[in-house]
Computed example of a mutant assay.
Amino acid sequence: MSRKFKLGNLYLGSVFVLLYLPILFLIVYSFNAGDVMQGWAGFSLKHYSELFSDTRILEIVVSTFLIALLSSLLASIIGTAGALYIYNLKHTVVKNIFLSLNNILLVSPDVIIGASFLILFTVMGFALGFTSVLLAHIAFSIPIVVLMVLPRLQEMNQSIVASAKDLGANNWQMISRVILPVISPGILAGFFMAFTYSLDDFAVTFFVTGNGFTTLSVEIYSRARQGVSLEINALSTMMFVVSLLLVLFYYVISTRAVKNKKRSTRLVLPASEGL
């Protein structure tokens, strides 16, 4: 094993320790019998029982997941359609303009996006609440889906589309039976990324929420300002576990998709050789 390889592993390990040590510290103290994070008072599940008996936080959890699910679903549909439109543009300058506009939304600070939506909703006289948060989450999730789907479209074998046209497939049949199955891993990745961003978002949501509606990130921020409670640790631990399960679920699905693709390729090759 070379010295550079050892140093690289040491550096990577140090980075992971710095990233995950605070999370581990948060998880451990969610089981602390005490009420503060200073000192260990013994193992206890009381903060989790307090969490599940808090009806307000449970309602916020449901609302947060509902926003994330609806926004990611709608963003996946709109973003996939947008990626197909950009991919099929023949004019290079126009295509680059759309790609640049999409990338600008990706790199724009969340504070700017949130403030822009707040101004827009205020000018339109739109009431802040569930709908305003949902629209904002859909808007900042669409560029993520476009970014995930476009590479799949660019990698797609054009002979498949040409064969479908030769066999008499119309546009809808080509999209539903040929293109969408090929780019489905990108759509799935975009959905999970949008779902994660929506669950985690604070800045945009902070600007556009109102009328008693809030999400977990905003609620945790509000409670943390009043003093860090270990109930927040328990809630953050639950959110971390959910995020970890989503990552594992996506990994299993993507791994299975790769295996099915390799298996179908092996079946097609002998048949084409026989022809």
Rank of each mutant, 00 (worst) to 15 (best):
M1G: 11
R3T: 11
K4Y: 14
F5M: 14
K6L: 15
L7M: 13
G8N: 09
N9H: 09
L12Y: 11
V15I: 15
V17N: 05
V17W: 08
L21H: 06
F25V: 02
V28Y: 08
Y29F: 15
N32G: 11
A33L: 04
D35H: 07
Q38E: 09
W40H: 00
W40F: 01
G42P: 03
L45E: 06
K46D: 11
E50C: 04
E50A: 12
F52P: 10
F52S: 11
S53Y: 03
I57V: 11
L58H: 07
V61F: 14
V62R: 10
I67H: 07
I67L: 14
A68I: 09
S72L: 02
L73R: 00
A75D: 04
A75V: 05
G79D: 06
G79A: 06
G79K: 01
A81I: 13
L84G: 01
Y85N: 08
I86F: 01
N88H: 09
K90D: 13
V94R: 11
N96V: 01
N96R: 03
I97P: 00
I97N: 01
S100H: 07
N102Q: 05
L105K: 05
L106D: 00
V107L: 11
V107T: 15
P109F: 08
P109K: 10
D110V: 08
I112Y: 01
F117D: 05
I119P: 00
F121H: 05
L128N: 01
T131Y: 10
S132R: 03
S132L: 07
V133F: 03
I138W: 00
A139M: 14
I144S: 04
L147Q: 05
R152F: 15
L153P: 00
Q154P: 05
Q158T: 15
Q158C: 03
S159V: 10
A162G: 11
S163W: 00
N170G: 06
W172E: 04
M174P: 06
I175K: 07
V178W: 07
I179H: 02
P181H: 03
A189M: 13
A189K: 08
F191L: 08
M193L: 15
Y197E: 11
S198N: 08
D201R: 02
F202D: 03
T205E: 01
V208G: 02
G210Y: 02
G210Q: 03
N211E: 04
G212N: 06
T215K: 05
E219W: 14
Y221W: 13
Y221D: 07
Q226P: 04
G227C: 03
V228F: 14
S229Q: 14
E231K: 07
E231M: 03
E231S: 03
I232K: 02
L235R: 01
S236W: 02
S236Y: 03
M239Y: 12
S243M: 11
L244N: 10
L244V: 13
L245Y: 04
L246M: 15
F249D: 06
F249M: 15
I253Q: 14
A257Q: 13
N260R: 13
N260W: 08
K262E: 12
S264E: 12
L267R: 11
L269W: 08
S272A: 15
E273F: 09
L275R: 13
